[in-house]
Amino acid sequence: MESSRSGTAGRPIKCKAAICRKAGQPLSIEEIEVDPPKAWEVRIKILCTSLCHSDLSSWKLDVEPFAIFPRIFGHEAIGVVESVGENVHEVKEGDTVLPVFHPNCGDCPDCKSSKGNGCSVFVKRPGLVHNMPRDWTSRFRGSDGQVIYHFLKVSSFSEYTVVDIANIVKIDGLFPVDRACLLSCGVCTGVGAAWKVAGVEEGSTVAIFGLGSVGLAVAEGARLRGASKIIGVDLNPEKFELGKKFGVTDFINPSGCRDRPLSEVC
Rank of each mutant, 00 (worst) to 15 (best):
S50G: 15
V63P: 10
Q25F: 06
C119T: 06
G243Y: 03
E241M: 02
K112P: 01
S158W: 09
V265N: 03
F157V: 00
I230A: 01
E86W: 02
V214T: 10
L183W: 08
V197C: 13
V91P: 02
K124W: 04
S158H: 04
D107A: 09
H75W: 00
A194I: 10
G127L: 03
A9R: 03
N236E: 01
A219S: 11
K115T: 12
I32Y: 15
K60R: 11
S156G: 14
L262W: 00
P261W: 00
S114E: 13
V121P: 07
V177T: 13
C181F: 11
F66Q: 06
P103T: 02
L27F: 15
S6V: 08
D164S: 15
E238Q: 15
N131Y: 04
N117M: 14
F246G: 00
P99N: 01
V200W: 11
P37S: 05
E201D: 00
E201F: 05
K14H: 14
E76W: 05
P261C: 11
T161W: 08
S156P: 14
G118Q: 06
I46M: 09
I13S: 02
Q146I: 14
L235R: 12
D250A: 13
V123K: 13
G210A: 11
K245L: 13
V123L: 14
K244A: 13
L98K: 08
G186D: 09
L128K: 06
T189A: 06
P237M: 04
L216A: 02
L174Y: 05
Q146C: 15
E90W: 07
K239C: 07
P65W: 00
E41A: 07
C105E: 08
K92Y: 01
P254Q: 07
G7N: 03
T205Q: 12
M1L: 14
K124Q: 10
V206G: 06
I72V: 15
N104T: 12
F73V: 01
C15P: 09
A207G: 11
V147S: 11
G74R: 02
H130Q: 12
M1S: 13
L61M: 02
E238Y: 11
I230G: 08
D35S: 14
V154Q: 09
I68E: 11
S83I: 11
E241N: 12
S158G: 12
D164R: 03
S184I: 10
A9H: 01
K16M: 03
H150P: 13
K229E: 09
I231M: 11
S138N: 07
P237Y: 03
C52W: 10
D107G: 09
D259W: 08
I13A: 05
D107W: 08
D95R: 00
D234F: 03
L174T: 15
C185I: 09
G145E: 05
V187A: 08
V265T: 10
E86K: 02
S143W: 00
V177C: 13
I32A: 09
I32M: 06
C15V: 07
V97G: 12
I231E: 11
G24W: 02
W136N: 14
V129W: 06
D107V: 12
D259T: 05
N253W: 00
D178A: 04
F122D: 15
G190W: 12
A39D: 14
A193R: 13
F140L: 04
V187H: 12
E2Y: 04
S83V: 09
E201L: 10
A67E: 01
I46A: 10
L27A: 05
